[in-house]
């Protein structure tokens, strides 16, 4: 399990190197191509970067956990939308009419429970039927989206609460509310993955399920808990984002699963499971948002953004494999 310390550092550091590269490129290119008088690496702009990373970021952190298990969750976009619908709609339910702004925490709890519940359904199916998580969550991605549509037809669900908007727009210690949530989630998940039995089990199961079973790890409940965690995080992402938006279209959150997976892979987590780091995923999330922001900053148009993001994903995969090969050769010598 020690494929050369240098290459490990290279791999761990790769995403941060990529981020530095992006910062340099967009700062220089921005001087020539951007109309803004402010530099790209302005403090406010970097604070915004963290804030804008939050919706995908919170989900991607959870996706890392699932992928370290060797599973995948394609239904997070639909869970995100369903939780958002419950979140905004529950604030208008007549039974809560007397609560005033106290309805907000109630709505939060309901939305988070929705996410946990939908995640638990996925986890239970994976556990009890033994169907691959890819298929289970591909089905759920359709099924949960269907539930979102059934809730309110094709109409958006809206409720604008200015207390909530003010809370979401607040900047405690200069840092946006959404960023606090992203940082908090990253910290907690990092702690779970590196300092607890649950985290060690997650790596063990992803690395070799058979061996993990033999070592007495209960794989089924472990999966269930992880799917509940990612359901919770998808819902958390929704309540943080929609606090500031107040209206959800039934199509919202589509493709979020793909962006989350992209961020996780950029962070160096293997689809095969058994390896991966929360902090690197955080880097992957920043790298994607930086790319979007930077391309906008220098005035790239839609087609370029799509083209560049797609090709960079493939290039990173290629480089990652080359680095891995190098690591293994070094070990052999």
């Amino acid at each position: 399990m020690e494929p050369g310390t240098l290459s490990t550092y290279l791999k761990r550091g790769a995403i941060w190197g990529f981020i530095v590269l992006e910062l340099i490129f967009f700062s220089i290119a921005g001087e020539f191509l951007s109309l803004s008088d402010k530099p790209f690496m302005d403090l406010d702009n970097m604070l915004l970067l963290f804030k804008q990373s939050a919706p995908i970021g919170i989900i991607a952190i959870g996706m890392t956990l699932i992928m370290i298990n060797g599973n995948i969750d394609l239904s997070v976009g639909a869970i995100f939308a369903m939780s958002a619908v419950i979140f905004l709609d529950s604030m208008t339910w007549p039974i809560f009419a007397g609560l005033g702004d106290a309805v907000i925490p109630v709505a939060w709890v309901l939305a988070l429970l929705t996410g946990v519940g939908l995640g638990a359904i996925n986890g239970l199916i994976v556990w009890k039927t033994g169907v691959d998580a890819f298929i289970v969550t591909l089905g759920a991605m359709l099924g949960y989206r269907g539930l979102v549509f059934m809730y309110n037809g094709e109409q958006p669900t809206s409720h604008l609460n200015w207390t909530l908007v003010d809370f979401a727009e607040a900047q405690f210690l200069g840092i946006h509310t959404a960023t606090w949530f992203l940082l908090g989630v990253t910290l907690v998940l990092w702690f779970i993955m590196t300092r607890t039995v649950h985290g060690r089990n997650a790596y063990a199961i992803g690395d070799n399920r058979e061996a993990a079973v033999n070592a007495g790890i209960r794989v089924g409940p472990h999966f269930l808990i992880n799917f509940m965690i990612i359901g919770f995080l998808a819902a958390l992402s929704a309540v943080v984002f929609y606090a500031e938006s107040g209206s959800v279209n039934p199509n919202d959150g589509e493709l979020y699963e793909l962006w989350a997976i992209t961020a996780v892979v950029l962070g160096g987590t293997k689809l095969a499971g058994g390896s991966g780091s929360i902090i690197s995923t955080f880097g992957g999330v920043l790298a994607i948002q930086l790319l979007r922001k930077g391309l906008g900053h220098i005035g790239a148009d839609t087609e370029t953004v799509n083209l560049v993001i797609g090709l960079i994903l493939i290039a990173v995969l290629f480089l990652d494999r080359q680095l891995n090969l190098k690591g293994r050769e070094a070990l052999r010598i």
Binding site: L35, K38, N45, L48, K51, Q52, P55, R292, D301
Partner: peptide, 20 residues
Amino acid sequence: DAGGDVARQIAQMEDLIQQE
């Protein structure tokens, strides 16, 4: 261009405000 995504459009509004 927001690409039809509300989250991206809100981010772009923030960027434009930040660029003054």
